[in-house]
């Protein structure tokens, strides 16, 4: 069993790169020949209209979807070490599990399936809960939490995962401004600690305010780089014009892989 202390974890975050990657479902590309890179320690917002392939991008990064063409590369950590917050977490909230135990699952990489919990593990869980403002919720069952509280619980688990690369899929949907602000502070702290953060977001105002880099996609790359240079009216217009529906009779793409 791995038992990395804080010192022997490789410094800085992990890097993620899409190399001419085509990712999709049933041979239809949701993302077509995408090349984009997320440097170690960077903090990037992924934006684009509905159906642009934003969630697909994250699913390919953690390996839930295999690229049809091209490659998705991660350097600096193993795939299973990535912390990933899905858009619709399939959480069974009726399961009789208190918040503390649920959050403690974030220590999976450290304790695995059978490792015993030590006192410093308990302290880490308590620290994670206090970082997201959930002190006093330790023994609450999951089904008594509000939507915002559940989102805080999921963030606490992300804190414990102590991951070099953190992927968030619309983490602030149905969350009020105050909670968004506090959770956004947690995200900023992760980045300040050198972790790489990639977040799918809809709130362009929030992206402009808090994210130094942005990636604008609409089933293909529209723009990538500094947020101010990416979120221009021309780019956003180009993104809005993308065609969301699949063309069942579309010819097969014959572009030679440009490596």
């Amino acid at each position: 069993m791995r038992n990395l202390g804080e010192d022997d974890r490789p410094a800085g975050g992990a890097a993620l790169a899409f190399l001419n990657a085509t990712i999709g479902y049933d041979s239809h590309p949701a993302l077509h020949h995408l090349s984009a890179s997320f440097a170690a320690g960077s903090m990037t917002a992924v934006v684009g209209p509905n159906g642009a392939g934003k969630s697909t991008l994250l699913k390919a990064a953690i390996g839930h979807l295999r690229p049809i063409g091209g490659d998705v590369r991660i350097s600096g950590c193993r795939r299973t070490e990535i912390a990933y917050l899905p858009q619709l977490a399939e959480i069974d909230r009726t399961f009789p599990l208190p918040v503390f135990d649920f959050v403690a699952m974030g220590l999976w990489q450290r304790r695995g399936a059978f490792g015993g919990f030590r006192r410093d593990d308990d302290e880490d869980v308590a620290r994670a809960l206090s970082a997201v403002g959930l002190v006093g919720f330790e023994q609450r069952p999951l089904d008594t939490l509000s939507g915002g509280q559940l989102q805080r619980v999921l963030f606490a688990r992300l804190v414990l995962q102590d991951a070099p690369l953190i992927l968030l899929d619309e983490p602030f949907t149905a969350v009020d401004d105050r909670t968004t602000g506090e959770l956004m502070d947690v995200v900023a702290r992760w980045n300040a600690e050198g972790r790489t953060v990639v977040a799918v977001l809809h709130d362009l105002e929030l992206v402009r305010r808090r994210f130094p880099r942005a990636l604008l996609i609409a089933r293909r790359l529209i723009a990538e780089g500094d947020t101010a240079a990416v979120l221009t009216p021309e780019h956003l217009l180009a993104a809005r014009r993308h065609i969301e529906a699949w063309d069942e009779a579309a010819p097969y793409c014959e572009v030679a892989p440009a490596q």
């Binding site: 953690i62 839930h64 193993r78 795939r79 299973t80 990535i82 990933y84 899905p86 977490a89 399939e90 959480i91 069974d92 399961f95 599990l97 135990d101 649920f102 699952m105 999976w108 990489q109 399936a113 059978f114 999951l142 688990r157 995962q161």
Partner: peptide, 21 residues
């Protein structure tokens, strides 16, 4: 042996998959 992964597989199967369980 199975208790912890079994609980996790019940509550949040997506997470178990992501961490390599």
């Amino acid at each position: 042996v199975l208790w912890r992964p079994l609980v996790l597989e019940c509550v949040d199967p997506g997470f178990l998959k992501a961490v390599g369980g």
